[in-house]
């Protein structure tokens, strides 16, 4: 029975150690600024299309569904309000993080996993370089900066998508849509909408790096690590959003 829990407990301990070291490295020299910028480009700029696409179509779908539902109560003009609240509070952060996890957690796991099985990580250690400082911390910092930025873009594009539907399908005027959209948002929504992607970013980057650095078993192991990273990061995003939402719901 105890052996059954040994693996997961060991895994959790290793993950916590990795997270602690990666975060601790923020205040420790040397800092690999060029790696941070490269990762910001890969994670942020590289994921821009996917974030815009996700935001736009989730805004469209939301406006279509909410517009019809609100129409039953004669409240179609409040479509923008509902779209903005749901996008900023929940769907924007979660969907963007899920897409970024799909693209980047798996990417980090496969990149680091390949380096692990070809002994490049060992070579780095042998050259006197800390792989966590060189590989994990820059990815963590880059994701923590870029995921909130991508979420803001996805939120705004989602609102634009909602407006397209509101104008074309429900014939709302631009002023009517954007005024309700803007006025519906409170500071707590903005805080929640930025805090979530910031916290998700650690799950996305650290889970990807953890599975990459613990890859065993050659190329087959790299494939397994890639899948595990994406699945685990996605699950963590759902768990974390539930916890953060509960905290905000209780406090407001």
């Amino acid at each position: 029975m105890l052996d059954y829990f040994k693996g997961p407990v060991q895994g959790l301990q290793d993950f916590t150690t990795l997270a602690g070291q990666a975060i601790g490295n923020i205040w420790r020299r040397p800092h690999y600024w060029d790696d941070i910028l490269i990762q910001m480009d890969t994670i942020g700029v590289g994921s821009l299309t996917i974030a815009v696409f996700t935001g736009f179509f989730s805004g469209i779908v939301m406006a279509l569904q909410m517009g019809r539902a609100l129409g039953q109560y004669g409240q179609t003009e409040r479509t923008g309000e509902v779209v903005s609240i749901i996008l900023v509070r929940e769907l924007g952060p979660v969907l963007t993080a899920l897409m970024i996890a799909g693209r980047n957690s798996s990417g980090m796991a496969s990149e680091l996993g390949s380096m692990k099985v070809t002994e490049q990580i060992d070579a780095m250690r042998a050259l006197g370089i800390d792989p966590i400082q060189k590989l994990v911390t820059p990815r963590m910092i880059a994701t923590a900066i870029m995921l909130p930025c991508l979420t803001v873009i996805a939120d705004f594009i989602g609102m634009v998508g909602g407006y397209v539907v509101s104008a074309l399908v429900y014939h709302l005027r631009a002023h009517q849509y954007w005024t309700t959209t803007w006025q519906a948002l409170e500071w707590s929504d903005v805080v929640q909408g930025l805090l979530k992607p910031f916290i998700f970013s650690f799950a996305v980057s650290l889970v990807g790096c953890y599975y990459g650095l613990n890859t065993t078993g050659g190329t087959q192991g790299v494939g397994k690590a890639t899948t595990q990273a994406m699945v685990t990061a996605s699950m963590w995003i759902f768990v974390l959003t539930a916890i953060i939402t509960k905290i905000f719901v209780s406090s407001t």
Binding site: T118, Q120, A126
Partner: peptide
Amino acid sequence: AERDLFDLRQRVGVLFQEGALFD
């Protein structure tokens, strides 16, 4: 600790099995 070994390791050259060049 790993960090305390870095200076010693820098005095050793290692050739890994497949070369382990950074891709």
